[in-house]
Design a protein around this nucleic acid. Sequence first.
DNA 1: AGAAAAAACTAACTATCGTTAGTTTGTCAC
DNA 2: GTGACAAACTAACGATAGTTAGTTTTTTCT
Lengths: 212, 212
Amino acid sequence: MVIAESVLASAPTRGEVTAARILDVAEALFARHGYEGTTLRDVAAGVGLRTPSLYNHFSGKDALYAAVLERGVAPVLSALSEFARDGSGDPEGLVVTVMELLAGRPDLPRLIQHEILSGGECLMPLLGDSIGPVFARAHEVAEASPGAGAWSAEEIPLLVLAMYHVVVGYFTIAPLYAELQGQDLLTQPAIERQTRFLGELVSILFSGTTKE
Amino acid sequence: MVIAESVLASAPTRGEVTAARILDVAEALFARHGYEGTTLRDVAAGVGLRTPSLYNHFSGKDALYAAVLERGVAPVLSALSEFARDGSGDPEGLVVTVMELLAGRPDLPRLIQHEILSGGECLMPLLGDSIGPVFARAHEVAEASPGAGAWSAEEIPLLVLAMYHVVVGYFTIAPLYAELQGQDLLTQPAIERQTRFLGELVSILFSGTTKE
DNA sequence: AGAAAAAACTAACTATCGTTAGTTTGTCAC
DNA sequence: GTGACAAACTAACGATAGTTAGTTTTTTCT
């Protein structure tokens, strides 16, 4: 059996194609109903398969869930790592990058939030050492900002958490907001507005510049 | 044994006592594992009962969940309504009030987040017209602030959503943060720190005052 | 074309879910 | 005390979950 192919890969196997389709359907269902609320029969039906056929691609429900989570979280983590790697990454650029990433996969934030609410036992192994550097870099940026000293050292992590929640929460509350205010937050103009808003937020909170 | 009774109420029936205990256990379990992930057998075991005994107090799992949600969400909604009722409520006071509320019931934010992730179909009937006035009042405050015009009209709802997510998200991510950074966000000093942080955030974002 | 491997299928098992029926225990008014 | 009612119990049902075994179809390689 030919193993995973990289950049110059050959055409994907039939099995790899259906495996990807399974991941797509499972991601949507896990994001909407959580792990316990999602049934393998629903996943199979979404793909157009019978339940046992899933076992030709994944060893079980747990493994499928882990695969969905890993595939979904990977691009975000790599963006975070790149931001924290060299000292050149600015928070505003990170926010824009992450927003573009999530806009293309609006199920991902809900998937991650479900995982976090359930304790994050499946997410934590994936985080590895991608998170620590982000906090470190946030400290650097905050201290080098014009309004230096505005935030105490113990407040920086709270600021990072706050930014995380604002970014992710926007997507998770979109369905409720649609029914509550009759406005779809996931349209392209709405997402662009939110991205602008986040940019201003970062500018105010990290650089200490008041809005003009 | 004489139990603590509310201000002017008669003594609670034995049934009311166990009903309250059922609600307590169910709230904790629903908050941790969500609706689908919580089993009535676990609820009963947590109370020290057999599963069918739950049906002496609630007509089924759905009704129990609805009761938990209603009891949990009521104080928050009344705080929101009071904030929006007369024009005197300031955002900082609201944030402090809500933080005190949630600090006393740290399961509540996770319960609400689970509900929102699942579409909020059970939450929405409870919201009624408690939410609209909050947005309206936010507009008033933002426009009457010293840095008036700093936020455009279309950004005010985003600001309200952002504040909501920062407040609620703090509690939902606490368990993961504990394992990730080895720090418990739910201790009293940590919550007081977060409350101060939120106060500064509101001050900056609503009043337009830069941190000194 | 034909053999071998991959990937679909049918059928069914075990466990556990929410729920119901019927019974026993406990509590309180008279 | 004794009857009446509330609230616990035991036993079990039907439905559905994840999973396995065994079989048939489809693809792939020579």
